[in-house]
Design a binder for these strands. Structure first.
Lengths: 258, 258
DNA sequence: TCCAAGGCAAGAGCAGTGCTCTCTTTTGTG
DNA sequence: CACAAAAGAGAGCACTGCTCTTGCCTTGGA
């Protein structure tokens, strides 16, 4: 316990210097917690610095010692949200088989975990995958955490590629260069056509979740989980994952509880 | 009150009764125009009733004679946005072949038109397909216009089904009932599996557009239009559209007429 | 141990918001 | 023409994000 560097959020200096630093960390966390509470309750647009301060028993101006502006608070929440959904995805991946495991099941488990997280935290999901807030454009701090889910999806496909192989989709001649560039950026051992399909599937996955969450499926889709699982399985096939249970394209049965 | 025709609301063509009505219509339109201007410039969250009134040379309270609240103004803009993107989709459909025309091309044209509209009106797109605004939940008035794009996509696939047939995707047993229900609701002459694929493709299409528009593709995708066209073509195949230029593929056999 | 420095909270205040009320002006119609 | 309905004007309330100044008090060094 001693030698282990506890990952204290942002501070790489492991030693907690004094009561002052500690208090600062605690207050910062308390502010974010309360802000997250209000976010969950009312949405990003109604998140009010003054209300957060009020709830914490401090005056609004004091809060500016911790976050220079409302947008900075929002940015912190965005980073946390990306981390939370990324963590959910990683946990689902690790819970479902190993690098050699049943790849379609892992793919589905990851996607399902993202959906579950989104349904449980709709406003936080909207914060990161909905329209950009107020007049806000994502700062640099968010790009790392933002890629975690994508990395997990890439990892699942890469594992499949290494252990079992992929049914590499046909190459679109217009995307030859772009596919090569993507593959080099994302996973240099994957065929370009797979990289293309992967990025497409990534965006489409969130299209399914967003439509469900933002009410577009109201009065259109009833069996949402079933539709999701079906579509996600098809997305898995589109990136080349080999579904043992359905070699040609028949119907798969249940699987992979959560 | 007896002889008075009450429901003109939606039909301004019918006998504009007097200068007063005309003025009301004009002022209402001016308010919406200015609001749309501010929406395009700054986004929905920064749309201010007072600023709109100021720009129009009226006092803010006067604006409440036309829209009972800010949310009502937003709702009007939402309806207009749905209508605009729906109109763009319909125009693209009508511009590209006829009911017998090259179905994958029509499909791609419609999707491309939606994307073009979104790129040209990002804030309006975010208003309707991004996260629900402030604490706002879509009222009944929006359900009609909201379905126009979906109707166009359905229409293209239905035309294909009637004239050329579809490569009906395999039926997922877990979605048998849901698929039948959807088909009955959306297009009763389409096979249930096609209805399922259509709804999935619909959501996934907007996933692609949203990711591009909301910055998720930053530093990931360069050739965005090419990727979009590729993915949309694949979505077309997934609903059963027969691509003459590439007969093989995952879907398998053609045929399956009415 | 004492003391200056700086982190921190508090309060007042500014400019802006959505919305409601009251009062006055305009305007179409009996 | 007279009158009621519609529309505009203005003040005001409660709220917002943010800034600035004023003190308190913890902290680190002498």
């Amino acid at each position: 316990m001693f030698g282990a560097p506890i990952a204290w959020q942002t501070d790489p200096m492991s030693t907690i210097r004094g009561a002052r630093e500690r208090a600062r960390i605690e207050v910062t966390a308390a502010i974010k917690d309360e802000a997250r509470r209000q976010l969950a309750a009312e949405g990003a647009a109604k998140l009010s610095l003054r209300a957060v301060a009020r709830e914490l028993g401090m005056v609004s101006s004091a809060l500016y010692r911790y976050f220079p502006s409302r947008d900075d608070l929002l940015t912190a929440l965005i980073v946390d949200a990306y981390d939370a959904v990324g963590e959910a995805a990683e946990a689902a991946r690790d819970r479902t088989g190993g690098p050699a495991g049943p790849h379609p099941d892992r793919w589905l488990a990851v996607a399902g975990a993202v959906r579950e997280w989104a349904l449980a935290h709709p406003h936080e999901y909207a914060l990161i995958y909905g329209s950009p807030v107020p007049g806000y454009t994502a700062p640099q701090d968010t790009v790392g955490p933002a890629s975690r889910v994508g990395q997990v999806l890439i990892g699942v496909v890469r594992d499949a590629h290494r252990t079992e192989g992929l049914a590499v989709p046909p190459q679109d001649p217009l995307l030859r260069a772009e596919g090569a560039r993507m593959a080099a950026d994302l996973a240099d051992d994957l065929p370009p056509a797979v990289a293309v399909a992967l990025v497409s599937a990534w965006a489409q996955l969130f299209g399914l979740i967003s439509f469900e969450l933002f009410g577009q499926f109201t009065r259109v889709v009833e069996a949402r989980e079933e539709l999701f699982r079906h579509a996600v399985r098809e997305l898995g096939r589109s990136v080349g994952l080999l579904d043992g249970r359905r070699p040609g394209g028949g119907g798969g049965a249940a699987g992979a509880g959560a």
